[in-house]
Design a binder for these strands. Structure first.
Lengths: 170, 170
DNA sequence: TCAATATACTTGACATATCAATAATTTTCA
DNA sequence: TGAAAATTATTGATATGTCAAGTATATTGA
């Protein structure tokens, strides 16, 4: 995706400059995330699941035997619940996840990864690890740490301003 | 979105560490891009269009009177053509874009922004500019430049390896 | 206690991304 | 020249993301 008329495959040839450093950074962030996302998706899809399904499975593998409530997964994916409900539907169809209503609070539905799901994740562990590394091959470890720090700072700022908004209209 | 079982709102409380610096960076990149994307989307949607529709309009504003062929837009959005065709459909429904078949090569369809489209973009120029800036408020100008450099390096590496792949299986 | 609220999903509707297949033209070249 | 190949879209099917509404269950408080 773009955000600026000067972005794209022709990035270099185009004459129009970025309006601001802020915009240039935002565009760079979006484009880089897209490129890496696509690369990772290619690796993951060799197993017949999408990157998002993979992410859900990773979260569920990290949870206990019982799994997690739907909204808990949504929280960790930073996504709205509806999307998760339907994604879980598809993972269940593939027998990678099971869903079970909680006995103590029947509003809650626990989702857990199956053995088959675990096996699939295991098969993907190495390829994904390598893809992560390959995606960042150009950077030294020091660069990576700097990049992590800068990205964290952007998110922190964002969460701070979100909290600010909240406190103003409670 | 996530990619790691330790990610999410509970990022801080969780004990499980990242498997590698590479993974941590990739996750940070994805999450940060998501946060900024969402913030920008909020600003843009005040005008009743989505962020992607906005991006198309920006690209068309940057093009000449005649506009651009559909595939040219897709290229700059780094997206497949089908999505663009349908997005243009919706922009036409909103009278923000017009479509015209090229007389010299009747396979080609030119898409151009309308006056109404330009006016909408003008209304969004300042808010978007401010949002870009606000998103990165935490960073100094030096940090921004460093971030841009690092992101560029990641993309450059990627394009390089893509070319490499191509040359190996032509 | 029981009606009003809150919680945890789920469903419906629409925007978007991708892949595969198709349609309409244009180019190539035997 | 005229059929095969390439180019430029568009359409169909599926996955995902978001908002608004609806459902089932729990909790609260008069």
């Amino acid at each position: 995706m773009s955000i600026n008329e000067s972005a794209g495959a022709r990035e270099i040839e185009q004459s129009k400059p970025f309006t601001s450093v802020g915009e240039e950074t935002v565009v760079g962030l979006m484009r880089t995330a897209d490129v890496v996302r696509r690369h990772l998706a290619g690796v993951i899809e060799t197993e017949g699941i999408t990157a998002q399904q993979y992410n859900v499975l990773r979260i569920l593998r990290g949870a206990g035997e019982r799994g997690l409530p739907t909204l808990e997964i949504a929280d960790r994916m930073i996504e709205q619940a509806p999307g998760i409900t339907r994604m879980i539907d598809r993972l269940i169809a593939k027998q990678l996840v099971i869903r079970e209503r909680c006995a103590e609070d029947r509003r809650v539905v626990y989702c857990a990864i199956t053995e088959e799901g675990r096996r699939m994740l295991t098969r993907l562990d190495d390829p994904v690890q390598q893809a992560d590394r390959a995606a960042l091959d150009a950077l030294t470890d020091e660069d990576l740490r700097k990049l992590i720090t800068l990205l964290d700072a952007v998110r922190a700022e964002h969460e701070a301003s979100a909290r600010h908004q909240l406190s103003r209209s409670p």
